[in-house]
């Protein structure tokens, strides 16, 4: 269904011929997306319907056998669940901390610019480096966390090696790494907030929390939604940190789709099975993204 479009933001196509500019403008993008995303995806889908041994070039068409074997494998469902826990945990953490952090850093304090840029270092740091940093920090004997526990007289706990804490530990590391992006977006968002609305609420005697809830959040909602959409998608497919920190272990307790797909396709070289898992992960994240897209569409962000 075509949404009505306001004349003020869009130049209406006049007649049949003036449709062409859009095509020419989109051409470079379309060519690269078709060759680098669509074509590989179609190839990938075909691969997911085949089985081949290790490096063998003789792939046997197997229909949906790979899919069936995944859907019957309890590990697959563990991965689905962990993928959701990981994504929700990281995204919620990044949004809440990012929003609060932006409120804090938006205050006119001395050194504001310096504080803001220091906060961004984790975002700029490559995920492998951040993952190694955190795994060293979590080390019960040589790490910062172990040191703090030692100073407090607590027995040291190895968070990455306990199936009950490993997921929380990698999520915390990912929140540290990714929150700066949300702060960046929210600091920017807050600068466009209409302060008159906030002042009015203050004068009415509203508490700080109410001001945030009713005057600030509605105004920054569009930024929040777009940010949430993008970080959800990135987090779901984020590979680097878990790969170096736990490689999905112990006992699959931190196994999420990107590490699982990688292990099947490139660790064991069961490329058909790995690709099938990849396609299924696309379905899972597609369902999550669909909610956002519908919401964006409802807001008119697609018009």
């Amino acid at each position: 269904m075509q949404q009505p479009v306001t004349a003020s933001t869009t130049i209406r196509a006049r007649g049949r011929h003036s449709r062409s500019p859009a095509i020419w403008l989109l051409l470079p993008t379309l060519i690269s997306m078709v060759t680098l995303v669509l074509y590989p995806l179609v190839r990938g889908f075909y691969t997911s319907l085949t089985t081949s041994f290790f490096l063998s070039n003789q792939a046997v068409f197997a229909g949906f056998k790979n899919y069936a074997s995944l859907l019957h494998n309890p590990v697959f469902w563990t991965v689905v669940w962990h993928g959701l826990v990981w994504t929700v945990g990281v995204v919620l953490g990044q949004l809440v901390l990012g929003f609060v952090g932006a409120l804090i850093l938006n205050q006119p304090v001395k050194g504001q610019a310096l504080f803001q840029s220091i906060t961004f270092i984790p975002w700029i740091m490559p995920g492998v480096a951040a993952g190694l940093l955190w795994s060293l920090m979590y080390d019960p004997t040589f790490g910062l966390v172990g040191n703090i526990q030692h100073l407090l007289g607590l027995s040291s706990t190895a968070y990455l090696s306990n199936i009950h804490t490993s997921m929380a530990a990698v999520i915390l590391a990912a929140i540290w790494k990714g929150t700066p992006f949300t702060i960046l977006m929210m600091v920017a968002g807050l600068q466009t907030v209409d302060t008159a609305v906030i002042e009015a609420a203050r004068i009415d005697g509203a508490s700080w929390f109410k001001v945030i809830r009713h005057a600030v959040i509605p105004q920054v909602a569009p930024v929040l939604r777009t940010t949430a959409l993008f970080i959800t998608v990135w987090t779901f497919n984020y590979f680097d940190m878990i790969y170096v920190m736990t490689n999905g272990g112990p006992v699959n307790s931190t196994q999420i789709f990107p590490t699982y797909v990688y292990q099947l396709a490139f660790g064991q070289l069961d490329y058909g099975l790995g690709t099938a898992a990849g396609i299924l992960s696309l379905v899972v994240v597609g369902i999550i993204a669909a909610f956002f897209i519908v919401e964006l569409s409802r807001q008119g962000a697609l018009d």
Binding site: D139, P140, T141, S155, A158, L160, S161, G249, P250
Partner: peptide, 21 residues
């Protein structure tokens, strides 16, 4: 062994040995 066996690598192991732990 020190805690953290389930995530201890060869690197961790030789690190522990070299530290005298």
């Amino acid at each position: 062994a020190p805690p953290g066996v389930a995530s201890a690598t060869e690197s961790t192991s030789i690190g522990l040995f070299s530290s005298g732990k």
